[in-house]
Design a protein around this nucleic acid. Structure first.
Lengths: 150, 150
DNA sequence: GTAGATTGCGCAATAT
DNA sequence: TATATTGCGCAATCTA
């Protein structure tokens, strides 16, 4: 679901857009000619105040109105698409970070082990060498094979 | 998808929702009593076909209808809230992971350094001890030991 | 001051 | 059948 990329902006393309015309043309049911607000949409609805705001209540038949509505609808679609995209990206980011995390943890594990080994080796050798030194200095004969580490 | 719509939207402010009841109650402007599709919302509204779908076109005045609408509106709000919440959580998760990442990287850096130090130490000691051994065994003759860096 | 971007909201179709 | 999701349009804001 969803896609990538961003969307165009050519008018009238997208899904389909042939309706408005018909709508107001057919005069199916036209809300009260000049109503403050309608029920359906997103408007809220407080009181049926007249039509404050400007002298023109902006009638729904106006081309001007339809045009603006259409533009806004496009903008809304675009915005929502963008929003979804972003959400998806964020989700992707999470997975990306989780992977990176695992990688880092593995590395830590490795380094820790390496360190541990080296420490042991160090101690061991130190002792061995120390012993050697000791034996040699004391004229000891028994030799203990030394070796090169790592 | 998508169709026409028009009409609807109750005037008002935003922030509260008290409309529906009022809407049909106030009889502000009620869409044609029995319209196929709703105008405002996302309804479709293809042709003014009667009222297919069951025998009841479900008129907007019906209590039944209003009740269902209200329930759905609640569900929608709930769903959207949930959705937002999830998105936010995801975002938070990203930050969390980023922090953890930094922590891990720091640890790696530390371990790496520690390892390096230990290695040097190891080599140095090994050489020193070896030199000691050598000098002692050879009664001190040659000096200087080369070393490799790594 | 406008055009586009966001956002909350209700509707209806659809998924569960 | 009821709730949950989802696409969509409207209108109020916000922003550039």
């Amino acid at each position: 679901m969803s896609k990538i990329s961003q969307q165009n902006s050519t008018p009238g393309v997208n899904g389909i857009s042939v309706i408005h015309t018909q709508a107001h043309a057919s005069g199916l049911q036209q809300v009260p000619q000049l109503v403050p607000a309608g029920p359906g949409g997103g408007g809220k609805a407080v009181a049926p105040s007249k039509q404050s705001k400007k002298s023109s209540p902006m009638d729904r038949n106006s081309d001007e109105y339809r045009q603006r509505r259409e533009r806004n609808n496009m903008a809304v679609k675009k915005s929502r698409l963008k929003s979804k995209q972003k959400a998806q990206d964020t989700l992707q980011r999470v997975n990306q970070l989780k992977e990176e995390n695992e990688r880092l943890e593995a590395k830590i594990k490795l380094l820790t082990k390496e360190l541990s080994v080296l420490k042991d080796l160090f101690l061991e050798h130190a002792h061995n060498l120390a012993d050697n030194v000791q034996s040699i200095s004391t004229e000891n004969t028994t030799a203990d094979g030394d070796n090169a580490g790592q």
